[in-house]
Amino acid sequence: MNTRTSTANTRPAVRCEGLRKSYPRRGVVLDGLDLAVAPGTVHGLLGPNGAGKTTAVRILATLQRFDSGRAEVAGCDVASDPAGVRARIGMAGQYAAVDEVLTGRQNLVMFARLHHLRARAARLRAAELLERFDLEAAADRPVRHYSGGMRRRLDLAVSMIRSARVLFLDEPSTGLDPRSRNEVWEAVRELAAGGTTVLLTTQYLEEADRLCDRISVMNHGRIVAEGSPAELKARVGGSLDDAFLDLTGRPALLTPRSSPPLRSPDTSRGPRDGMRGVA
């Protein structure tokens, strides 16, 4: 499905070396993470709960500090030039980070203004993104009346206000029904086709398989395997499911989290079953 070839000779859009992070209570979360994401590709961080995927992405998006190692995003050093990173990235977390009371258009205009676009440019950009993410019909309805898929698309639209060079997506399809998930995947593919580098975290094999050019399998805070979906499957001579079990010692399908991530509600999670078989 993914026919784009990674451009081997260009500088990685995201690179980290020996990234370490530990918390007083959780202990070591990132244990020397090495990662290189080729520009213009969709790269998946696949791993079970607690593998450190979200922490890695939050660090790269300058939302969290790290203890040691090096990280670079779009040519900017994450530690010494966070403002440079922020000017070049888009970020969508696990929950659609939009104002539920405002309309989709009002959200886009507000975030565009906070991106320091002028009022007119912000309105134009909002209209453009609403069209691109197929939200024109719902543009002037409050977001709380949106479906899960529409919310996610709005969230993606907000994260693309500045035509980000690198887009971080933390579990982009968590809690979505299959139809909404397809909508989101389609939107991500279009972004990648337009040249945006996408780094996404997922615990779904199907998502990694169908959406990503390359997959880094993460466990206990480090990368345990990396390759294209086909390569990973070839390694164990079976399905990606087997590869995952082989690499992480855990089956790929996970029960809903027992401990929710920091500052996140755990209410809107859809059932995790029904994903098997496709991967």
């Binding site: 998006a61 970020m91 659609a96 980070a97 939009v98 991106h115 500052r263």
Partner: peptide, 15 residues
């Protein structure tokens, strides 16, 4: 805003 991620989003903006 913290729980909904709006604060995180604003923190990832150049503001």
């Amino acid at each position: 805003d913290i729980r909904g991620g709006v604060l995180d989003r604003m923190r990832s903006l150049p503001m």
